[in-house]
Write a protein that binds this DNA or RNA. Structure first.
Lengths: 346, 346
DNA sequence: TAATAAAATGATAACGTTATCAAAATCAAG
DNA sequence: CTTGATTTTGATAACGTTATCATTTTATTA
């Protein structure tokens, strides 16, 4: 029938107690059971087609060997590779992933958190949808946040040094002679990160004593799907390039935005990098196959995923002896063909 | 403490039976409980911070409200959008996704299937890693396969009409005057689909009475990560273009391969589409932002995901009155800038 | 108001595993 | 062979919910 064989059925079949059967089938170590009985159990289990009921086991132990990954949008090319990194790491430990998207919607995000708690998942890797995301409900749970925002002081976090990475790009542009650098970034202050980007830009400009005005800030929406983000960035870029801008270079907050800028430049016949240098951030595949290929500040997402997973599992499996850990990985500037020394404008 | 409040604690707190409390907190319909007691329960639950233990509930009902999605590789840009489609649909029904990757490894895939069974997930959406993937273990489970291979005759399947889509592209290229069309595709016969592609190509050529030889078949590996696939395809393309080939057009099995071809063409100074037309398949983001933009045979992944989810949930929730369903969605040719009429060769 | 029907609540037995402790079997040493 | 230590097995109580009844309360009707 539809109802599966249980441990009791196996016990009956082989004439041993269910305790012994359990030890053979689901016991942790190979210890404490005779080879002969082990075989007796296994053949009985195979005979009646026993499949472990993880539901019952999870319930009994109040553990699931599942962890959540909460992100905004899976179609954002940043995440799949990160998740893959997590996946590969946790497989070693026998965990699985429950994948939760929130579409940048804090309400859905909150529902997802509630789901995590109610499903008694063992832990969670969370990319907060915004800098003040409400994590209260998760306070008893081992979690690792994918952010370097200082809003999350009590939590374990892991992220790339985006600020440092941004400076890497800006310094390189300065070195190449650029003095009018535009910033293409998300406009909403709700979005994690957009305000520090503006601040980093201002700091850089004042340090280097070069001008920065609101005119050099191209705002669009990052808290939407990649496609929408791309299309909005293009619109913003068109508008920006229609004004006779002094910018000789653009730093974009992520590769999608950078590729949008590149697209518009191609469309308008502006030569990249001769007339305009463009640097993105993340290091997604699209940037490796664009024309020209995209200079970018790379974040090693697979590494982040892997480290986040490792951290989380250590935290899950030895909750004592744990102290809050903040990991910040350096970014790497990958110079491809969308950036170069400043030359004349059209 | 770490141990959470249970339904019994709530019952004690509000002086009602646990049955009544259960009815209020987890009961399906709003029926059969007085407004007054409902409030009494809810306030008690809130007071002692009760969170439903889904582990216990799932165990008792032998249902998880979780479905699996089994794919080869999440970083393949084909899948995230598909999963998003699934995600958005199942949210309506209160289900969640357990995400399983197999890295094209049948052994991992089989382990994942076992996991699905043992975790008593309610159903699964499966993209088989190869045409003879062993689904035996899943036979009692509601599943929907993402394939149009006829190897899976007893199963519900849903996929785009790839063959038809491929013909769409080939016919269009023929119409544009192309008579020497190369096929860029996966080389291994293990890979789902690569043999029918070759067959479709041969059929088309013999129908249209144009030549096709092994020389016009550029083989690389599709059963690897996108990045690797891209790089292998580039190598194959370089080799192909070094021979003085008569091809004026290339049809690639997916957009990654097509973009690799485009990349090599750009690299070699071959003008696309003037000297070489390239058409891909899938409709991924990278193809919209490449230069030139990529003509492609689009598969609506989000729609597939959504339909697969709907099908699966219907099957889960009314297992009777179900008959095997095979859905084949048409592809759509999207003509962008990488294809055009045949002209002179270099 | 009594008798009956209907609605609301209560008592309790599963679900299948793991964990704990007790009992039995085996082994080692005198 | 006994005794004691050690290994192996067995009996049984949870885990927290849902589902099935039985019971009580409330509503309806004569």
């Amino acid at each position: 029938m539809s109802s599966k064989a249980t441990i009791v059925d196996v016990a009956r079949e082989c004439g041993l107690s269910q305790a012994t059967v359990a030890r053979v089938l689901n016991g942790q170590k190979e210890i404490q059971v005779k080879e002969k009985t082990r075989k007796r159990v296994l053949s009985a289990a195979r005979k009646i087609g026993y499949e472990r009921n993880a539901l019952a086991a999870n319930f009994r132990r109040q553990k699931t060997k599942n962890i959540a990954i909460s992100i905004a949008d899976l179609t954002n090319p940043f995440f799949p590779e990160l998740i893959k990194g997590v996946q590969n790491k946790i497989r070693e430990y026998g965990y699985s992933i429950v994948q939760l998207n929130n579409e940048w919607n804090p309400k859905i995000e909150q529902d997802n958190f509630k789901y995590i708690i109610q499903s008694r998942l063992d832990g969670a890797i969370i990319s907060p949808s915004h800098p003040r995301a409400n994590l209260k409900i998760l306070k008893q749970l081992p979690i690792v946040l994918l952010t370097n925002s200082n809003e999350f002081s009590g939590y374990d976090t892991i992220a790339n040094d985006s600020k440092g990475g941004m400076n890497l790009a800006l310094e390189r542009l300065f070195e190449l002679g650029h003095r009018n650098i535009a910033l293409l970034t998300g406009g909403s202050m709700m979005t994690a990160g957009s305000s520090w980007r503006l601040q980093t830009m201002k700091n850089f400009c004042s340090n280097r004593n070069i001008p920065f005005s609101e005119d050099l800030c191209i705002k669009c929406d990052m808290s939407v799907s990649s496609l929408e983000s791309f299309s909005q960035a293009r619109a913003a870029m068109r508008k920006f390039l229609n004004k006779d801008t002094p910018a000789t270079a653009i730093f974009a907050s992520n590769d999608i935005l950078a590729l949008a800028a590149l697209h518009v430049a191609n469309e308008k016949g502006i030569k990249v990098p001769d007339e305009l240098s463009i640097i993105g951030m993340d290091g997604i595949l699209s940037g490796e196959i664009s024309y020209p290929t995209l200079t970018t500040v790379e974040k090693n997402r697979s590494q982040i995923g892997s480290l986040a997973a490792k951290s989380l599992i250590e935290k899950i499996e030895s909750p004592h002896e744990w102290q809050t850990k903040k990991i910040i990985l350096p970014c790497k500037l990958i110079e491809r063909s969308s950036s170069g020394p400043v030359r004349g404008k059209k």
